[in-house]
Design a protein around this nucleic acid. Structure first.
Length: 282
DNA sequence: ACCCAGGCGGGCG
DNA sequence: CGCCCGCATGGG
C-alpha cells in the first residue's frame, strides 16, 4: 500500500507517456488501475481517489518492497508537486493546463524502455505506437509466470530485421536493431545519469535514429532529467498559438523560449502543455 | 481518395 | 546553419 498526495493516475497514464504505450489500462468510477511490464516482471496497480491509496500486486523478480519502490519511481509519486507547480505556473495558459491535468506526473521508465518507445514514436501516432509496442512485447519479451517481460536490448540486437518489422515498425526497424546493439555493446546507458543534460543529449544523438526530439524524450521519461523539453508537432503548434500569436517559430527558438520561461522544470511544463493541448485540441 | 501522426537522415545551398 | 525530401503504416 502506497500513499499518494496530489496524484491522478488517470491523467498520468492517459496521454503520450511511455507507460501508456505498453500498459494494460482499466478505469472504473472510483478505482483506477493499470498493469505494466518491466524487464524484471509485471506489476498491477489500483488507485483509490477517495483515500489516495495505491494498492498493488507483482510477479517476476520483485519483492513487496522493490515493487513498491518501482511504482513510486515510475509514477513519480515522490515528486514535490507544490514545488513543480510553483516553478512552472508562469501564465494563464499554464494555469489552465495545471488545473485541467491536476496530479499528472512525468513518468519514469528505464533508459532502454524509453529509448525503444520513442524510436517507435517518430513520425507515428499514439494508437499505432501502442499497438506496435504490445506486439514487440508479445514477440520479443521473455515469458515469465504467464506474462511477457519488456523486451531486452539483447533480444532485439540479435533479432532479424524482418521479425522486428512484422511488429509494424516500418522503416524504424533498422534504428531499433542498431540502437539495441549499441546498448548491448559500446553505449553505457547508466553513465548518462551522471552526465549533464546537454552532454547526455549529445551522446544519445550519436545513435542512429535518435535526433533532437527523441533524445529529449529519452532524457525526460527514461532518465528523469526535467531540463529536457521534447518538441513534437503538438508542442510546436500549441506554443506558437498560445505564446507567439500563431507565428511560426523554429525548433531552436522554441527551445530557447522554454529555457527562459520554465527553467530547469521545463520538462514538466512540456508534459502539461502536451497533454492539455492535445486533449483540448488547442 | 486525402491527410496526419510525440521525426530523422541525407542532400543541397 | 536552414530548408526540403523520402520514409512505412493505419486510422479518421
Amino acid at each position: 500500500m502506497i500513499h499518494a498526495e496530489n496524484f491522478s493516475l488517470k491523467h498520468t497514464i492517459d496521454g503520450g507517456q511511455p507507460l501508456a504505450f505498453y500498459a494494460d489500462m482499466e478505469f472504473e468510477k472510483v478505482f483506477e488501475g493499470l498493469g505494466y511490464v518491466t524487464e524484471r516482471g509485471k506489476i498491477d496497480v489500483s488507485y483509490s481517489k477517495r483515500n489516495n491509496i495505491i494498492e498493488f500486486g507483482f510477479t517476476g523478480d520483485y519483492s513487496s518492497k522493490s515493487a513498491s519502490e518501482d511504482i513510486v519511481k515510475r509514477l513519480g509519486i515522490d515528486h514535490d508537486m507544490k514545488s513543480v507547480y510553483s516553478n512552472i505556473n508562469t501564465d494563464g495558459f499554464m494555469a489552465k493546463a495545471i488545473s485541467g491535468c491536476y496530479g499528472m506526473r512525468v513518468t519514469k521508465s528505464s533508459p532502454w524502455e524509453a529509448t525503444l518507445c520513442f524510436l517507435i514514436s517518430q513520425f507515428n501516432n499514439i494508437k499505432r505506437i501502442r499497438h506496435i509496442m504490445l506486439r514487440m512485447i508479445e514477440k520479443f519479451g521473455e515469458e515469465r509466470e504467464g506474462s511477457r517481460l519488456f523486451p531486452s536490448s539483447g533480444a532485439l540486437a540479435s533479432a532479424d530485421l524482418a521479425d522486428i518489422r512484422k511488429c509494424g515498425t516500418g522503416f524504424r526497424d533498422k534504428y531499433i536493431k542498431s540502437v539495441a546493439a549499441e546498448f548491448e555493446n559500446n553505449f553505457d546507458a547508466e553513465r548518462l545519469y551522471r552526465l549533464k543534460y546537454e552532454v547526455a543529449k549529445d551522446k544519445l544523438m550519436e545513435l542512429d535514429g535518435i535526433g533532437d526530439k527523441v533524445a529529449d524524450c529519452i532524457l525526460l521519461f527514461g532518465y528523469g532529467k526535467f531540463e529536457s523539453f521534447p518538441i513534437d508537432v503538438w508542442i510546436k503548434r500549441v506554443i506558437e498559438k498560445e505564446y507567439f500569436k500563431g507565428k511560426k517559430k523554429s525548433i531552436r527558438q522554441i527551445h530557447e523560449f522554454s529555457i527562459e520561461k520554465w527553467g530547469r522544470y521545463r520538462g514538466y511544463a512540456q508534459q502539461y502543455i502536451y497533454e492539455f493541448g492535445r486533449r483540448n485540441k488547442v
